[in-house]
Design a protein around this nucleic acid. Structure first.
Lengths: 141, 141
DNA sequence: ATCCAAAATTAGAAAGAGTCTAAGTTTGGC
DNA sequence: GCCAAACTTAGACTCTTTCTAATTTTGGAT
């Protein structure tokens, strides 16, 4: 996704194209490893100090609302972010908190009976366990 | 699950049976609405002031590790807790953050190829959208 | 029953993550 | 170029959770 594509995505969602917004989105596209807000702030701010912490959070919130970015809450740790590209599932490491993508495959949604009057917008499958690095470390101990 | 059953569950996981631990577990069994740590602390502490905030968190951590309690991280909000009983999925309201149970049905796990050397301990399906209260409120506006 | 070490609990301080405020700056339509 | 709305900012603040160091409780061994 180049700058023009990002501009279009933002504007079609009623968001202005600002230098800061662009940098946050570009950082997420270049760093697919699910960075935290703090990592995004540091990464962008190091290259271009015209980005504050508050704006990092504001822009992440706006990008999530616009559907361009996905947020993954991890128990007891900072949330992680993900530029939405191809559909995929997530794996969360119990030990180090790392979030990894798992190739997408279809998962059935529940029937209307068990949903009642709820309005379902999205469904996601989360796998938990040990990432390969942590599994190796545990095995060698 | 009565006191004796709770005692056995705790001891078979190497946890001592303490008054505080019991109260936290009992509170979760009686309040299936996925309370937050703060709600559990207030609820138990009101009846029996011999429970501190730190112990609430310590016990929740221990109970989760022992597999008796499930923790649900919600983006931008306090985690919610759940005494593990019958298997079920979760619905999280985008608007109010409420967590609700969805009747269980089997969900396929990914093939070994897409897992690599990861060790998968659990998988969970999370549905997102508006709970019936929030959906009704939105519709009436 | 009593003693002991390990486990658990406590209050309060501190850390970490995220939000808010009020003032200043940028954006894009006119 | 002008203007209002949108955006950004620094830093204070809130909320959730963890840590610390001292005290208490627990259950096994006498």
């Amino acid at each position: 996704m180049d700058a023009e594509r990002i501009r279009e995505s933002l504007e079609s969602n009623g968001l202005r194209f600002t230098s800061q917004r662009y940098c946050v989105m570009a950082f997420l596209l270049e760093h697919a490893g699910h960075p935290t807000a703090a990592e995004i702030f540091e990464g962008v701010n190091r290259l271009d100090p015209r980005l504050s912490r508050a704006t990092t959070y504001n822009n992440l919130r706006d990008l999530v609302q616009a559907g361009l970015v996905r947020e993954v809450a991890v128990e007891g740790r900072a949330a992680r972010f993900d530029a939405k590209s191809a559909e995929h599932h997530h794996f969360i490491c119990d030990w180090c908190g790392r979030v990894e993508d798992i190739a997408w495959y279809p998962v059935p949604r529940p029937g209307a009976a068990s949903l009642g009057k709820r309005v379902v917008r999205a469904s996601e499958l989360i796998l938990r366990g040990l990432c390969s690095a942590c599994a190796a470390e545990k095995a060698s101990q």
